[in-house]
Amino acid sequence: MAGRIHPTAIVAPEAELADDVTVGAYSIVGPGVRIGAGSQVGPHCIIDGQTTIGRDNVFYRFCSIGGMPQDKKYKGEPTRLEIGDGNMVREYVTINTGTAQDVGVTRVGDDNWIMAYVHIAHDCQIASHTVIANSVQLAGHIHIDDWAILGGSSAVHQFVRIGAHCMIGGTSSIRQDIPPYVIGAGDPFRPVGINSEGLSRRGYTPETVSALKEAYKILYRRNLKVEEAAQQIAALQAQRSEASDALQVLVDFLNASTRGIARA
Score class of each variant (00 low, 15 high):
residue 167 M to K: 12
residue 100 A to M: 13
residue 132 I to G: 00
residue 143 H to Q: 14
residue 119 H to W: 11
residue 115 M to K: 03
residue 108 V to S: 04
residue 180 P to T: 13
residue 123 D to R: 06
residue 97 T to V: 12
residue 128 S to M: 06
residue 153 S to K: 14
residue 110 D to L: 07
residue 84 G to D: 06
residue 174 I to H: 06
residue 169 G to W: 13
residue 139 A to C: 13
residue 177 D to I: 11
residue 156 V to K: 01
residue 153 S to N: 13
residue 171 T to I: 15
residue 183 I to C: 04
residue 120 I to Y: 02
residue 136 V to A: 04
residue 92 Y to R: 14
residue 86 G to F: 02
residue 141 H to Q: 03
residue 127 A to D: 04
residue 101 Q to T: 15
residue 97 T to Y: 03
residue 143 H to A: 11
residue 128 S to P: 04
residue 91 E to I: 13
residue 176 Q to D: 11
residue 153 S to M: 13
residue 150 L to S: 02
residue 157 H to G: 04
residue 151 G to E: 06
residue 144 I to D: 00
residue 94 T to V: 15
residue 96 N to D: 12
residue 125 Q to N: 15
residue 132 I to C: 06
residue 130 T to P: 00
residue 177 D to R: 12
residue 91 E to V: 13
residue 77 E to L: 08
residue 164 A to T: 09
residue 184 G to R: 10
residue 153 S to Y: 13
residue 163 G to C: 12
residue 119 H to T: 15
residue 164 A to Q: 06
residue 146 D to H: 09
residue 96 N to F: 07
residue 138 L to W: 01
residue 129 H to F: 10
residue 106 T to C: 07
residue 109 G to D: 01
residue 157 H to Q: 12
residue 111 D to Q: 14
residue 148 A to S: 11
residue 183 I to E: 02
residue 98 G to C: 12
residue 162 I to Q: 02
residue 106 T to F: 02
residue 107 R to M: 08
residue 107 R to W: 04
residue 85 D to C: 09
residue 104 G to R: 11
residue 159 F to D: 09
residue 186 G to R: 07
residue 181 Y to T: 04
residue 136 V to G: 04
residue 120 I to S: 00
residue 130 T to I: 07
residue 164 A to M: 10
residue 154 S to L: 05
residue 131 V to A: 11
residue 105 V to R: 12
residue 158 Q to W: 08
residue 102 D to P: 01
residue 145 D to R: 05
residue 100 A to Q: 13
residue 92 Y to P: 10
residue 174 I to V: 15
residue 166 C to N: 05
residue 127 A to F: 05
residue 134 N to A: 15
residue 141 H to N: 03
residue 155 A to V: 14
residue 162 I to N: 00
residue 104 G to P: 03
residue 117 Y to W: 12
residue 122 H to R: 15
residue 143 H to P: 05
residue 109 G to R: 01
residue 118 V to E: 01
residue 152 G to W: 09
residue 140 G to E: 04
residue 180 P to S: 15
residue 126 I to Q: 03
residue 83 I to Y: 01
residue 183 I to Y: 00
residue 175 R to N: 15
residue 147 W to P: 01
residue 119 H to P: 12
